[in-house]
Amino acid sequence: MRMRVVNHPVLGNLPERNRVTIYFNNQPFQAYEGDTIASAMMAEGIKTLRNHEESGNGRGIYCNIGHCFECRVQVGERKVVRACLTPVSEGMDIYSLSVFKKGSESHC
């Protein structure tokens, strides 16, 4: 809950929402229905969502509305999504994308 804006002087209090558990790189995190992957991770103070495929430099959200594709993450076995546009769901498995392995043909 540490980064949630629970009380807001104009928008009022945060309404009650159902909790869900999501897994980011196999580690469990608490999130809420209505969160995107990006907002859920940001609320937990996780800023790095992937590493650049060549340089390995860390990347997090940049535009937060689906334009920049910087926040793309892997969900489940092979689906790649934009964290900022993808709502969380119970038990969701999310993985960071990382540096291309030399010799491997494809990223996913």
Partner: peptide
């Protein structure tokens, strides 16, 4: 992040 990204994070998702 872009200024709009922070706005959406704070006001829409209610996350700082």
């Amino acid at each position: 992040m872009s200024i709009g990204a922070a706005q959406v994070m704070g006001n829409v998702h209610r996350v700082k």
